[in-house]
């Protein structure tokens, strides 16, 4: 009982700190230094319509690289952690029969989801969304396939290959940016093209699609390794 009281007291204290932060907060009348630079310079320099994507892929490219590594790491470690569990195909009770509606529905929906996912991460630099969102959608497609046919065995080799190739390509593009253009992960290694067109904003679409592929592969590998663990 004391523990809850102590926690409550601490949380309220943190609340007090947040309250002072909240009280002290005054929204800026105008864009601050960095935001103004991005607002003015994104179109001419990067050529990407979606400023947030520009920031994510080029301006703060190292963050995204870090982020992709985070996902790669989580997928690897989840695989490592669950590698201990016995494989599913050993003495496993026959899985619950899957409903008719689910199998036909998934057969119809999966391609659509995949298409949506690809669309999202290819048009990352034009419309909201990008590699991560697209990857997540692709992963949900794969998830649907898993639900529809639990015994379907995904070849880990393929997923790992896709993931590695995409990651490696991303790093190569980064290094190319250093060699050819201004700095590491600079997107000006390809022509900027015209604002709003599909093939614009230099290497951003390429990078973002690679990220999309990688994120999709990672989530599916995570889900696959999760699904292969046997029930406790």
């Amino acid at each position: 009982m004391i523990r809850r009281a102590v926690v409550l007291a601490l949380v309220l204290a943190m609340g007090a700190i947040f309250a002072t932060l909240l009280a002290g907060y005054a929204p800026d009348g105008d864009l601050n230094l960095t935001a103004r630079y991005y607002a003015d310079r994104t179109a001419p320099d990067i050529g990407s319509a979606n400023i947030v994507t520009a920031i994510i892929v080029t301006y703060r490219g190292l963050d995204t690289l870090g982020e992709v590594t985070v996902l790669f790491l989580s997928a690897t470690i989840v695989g490592l952690v669950l590698a201990g569990g016995r494989r599913r195909e050993t003495a496993q009770r026959p899985p619950v029969p899957v409903g008719e509606l689910l199998t036909t529905g998934s057969r119809f929906l999966v391609p659509l989801i995949m298409l949506l996912g690809v669309y999202v991460f290819v048009n990352g630099h034009l419309t909201p969304g990008g590699g991560f969102q697209g990857g997540a959608v692709v992963a949900s497609g794969v998830l649907l396939m898993l639900l529809a046919d639990p015994l379907k065995h995904f070849s880990h080799r393929l997923i790992a290959a896709v993931e590695s190739v995409a990651g490696f390509a991303y790093v190569v593009i980064g290094v190319l940016g250093l060699v050819l253009a201004g700095g590491f992960l600079d997107n000006r290694i390809l022509p900027l093209g015209e604002l709003g067109a599909l093939a614009s904003a230099g290497a951003i679409p390429l990078i973002y699609s690679l990220v999309g592929l990688k994120v999709g592969a990672e989530f599916s590998s995570m889900l696959a390794s999760l699904s292969e663990t046997e029930e406790l």
Binding site: N32, A35, I56, Y59, R60, E67, L71, S74, G130, F132
Partner: peptide
């Protein structure tokens, strides 16, 4: 201001990772 959005996007993904 686009910068917080970029940060959040990374934060969400990292949150998922953890």
């Amino acid at each position: 201001d686009p910068v917080p959005q970029a940060l959040v996007l990374t934060a969400i993904v990292i949150g998922l990772g953890i």
